[in-house]
């Protein structure tokens, strides 16, 4: 790992998360970390390593396997003045904490008029071979809840910057990290004041012919597809929303209005998903400018399998994205 002159390092995704936690816990003693295996083991994948050694067992706590109460620990602690970060190991485990997240945390400001500076970290996506109860992508459920901010960093830089913004935010934020990208690298500012703002999309590649909106693991695949499309003379714009609630509607509408074509690529299945929402947005706001029907390029509407080749058969690959781009552009 080397630091360039402008303070940017190539970090792995997990290092971005780890650096964010170290920096924010160092900066503000009200920040605490709570979850299964986060302390001694440093998390099942080492994401939280060295935090307990650095900040001590009072602020970094290993919990029992009690997802509902893990979420509640964050709510109650935030209500009495802390800025907790709670980890629910896999997205699928959030379902055990649904009441605390949806009925309690998301409504705290509505009921009390007060802030609830709570960050919930979890991990989704089918990057590992953990099967149908560890690899699901239902981020849209939480994006449909008033009072929750939901972010989905797709790379190390955003993993760091979005998590730091979430911790500094005064309202509950669900940070859905992407399984399968934990060791993927991206140049990331080391500065402790580097933040990625909540609610702001990033245009990862500019283009004129078609807008590809992608999340999680699908962002890198879309960039690769865009590179290949460019060789064929098709100019693809790739937008990573980064925050899915509230969605950066302005960035998407601006892009689609300009290109007239939209492909949304995600690891979730299509029905009632982010892709459905983005296509509805395009239909409502860009109808007169659309030159082709929007496309939802999503995982098949089946459960997530375990073997890697079956996983790949279920989710969009680079070839699939290229084919969708070709289809909407007619080239």
């Amino acid at each position: 790992m080397t630091t360039t002159v402008d303070g940017v390092r190539s970090l792995k995704y997990w290092q971005g998360v780890n650096q964010a936690l170290h920096q924010e816990m160092d900066r503000d003693e009200r920040v605490v970390l709570v979850g299964e295996d986060v302390g001694g083991p440093g998390g099942p994948y080492g994401v939280t390593r060295n935090l307990r050694a650095t900040f001590g067992p009072n602020r970094v706590r290993d919990t029992p396997i009690s997802e509902s109460t893990i979420a509640g620990l964050g709510i109650g602690a935030a209500a009495v003045g802390l800025r907790p970060v709670v980890e629910l190991m896999f997205f699928d485990f959030c379902m055990l904490a649904m009441d605390q997240i949806v009925n309690q945390a998301a409504k705290y400001r509505y009921f009390t008029g007060r802030s609830l500076p709570l960050t919930i970290r979890t991990m989704s996506g089918s990057g590992g071979s953990y099967g149908a109860q560890h690899c699901q992508s239902f981020e849209a459920w939480f994006a449909a809840v008033p009072g929750l901010t939901v972010v989905m960093p797709s790379n190390a830089r955003d993993a760091k910057g979005l998590l730091k913004s979430a911790i500094r935010s005064d309202d509950p934020t669900l940070v859905i990290e992407t399984f399968g990208l934990l060791t993927a690298r991206r140049d990331t500012p080391v500065d402790e004041d580097f933040l990625v703002p909540l609610g702001v999309a990033e245009t990862r590649r500019s283009g004129d012919d078609v807008t590809v909106v992608a999340t999680g693991r699908m962002v890198d695949r879309s960039l690769e597809a865009a590179e290949r499309a460019a060789a064929g003379g098709v100019s693809v714009e790739v937008i990573d929303p980064r925050t899915i609630a509230p969605l950066d509607r302005t960035a998407i509408v601006e892009s689609v209005s300009r290109t007239g074509r939209l492909v949304v690529v995600q690891e979730a299945s299509a029905p009632f998903s982010l892709a459905a929402e983005v296509c509805a947005l395009a239909a409502e706001e860009c109808f007169d400018r659309l030159r082709a029907a929007p496309v939802r390029l999503c995982a098949d509407f089946v459960n997530v399998p375990t073997p890697q080749d079956l996983i790949e058969a279920r989710v969009p690959g680079v070839d699939d994205i290229l084919a969708a781009v070709t289809r909407v552009t007619g080239r």
Partner: peptide, 10 residues
């Protein structure tokens, strides 16, 4: 129950 437990933790 979880919220009160969290408050006590805080």
């Amino acid at each position: 129950l979880p919220i009160a437990t969290g408050a006590a933790f805080g």
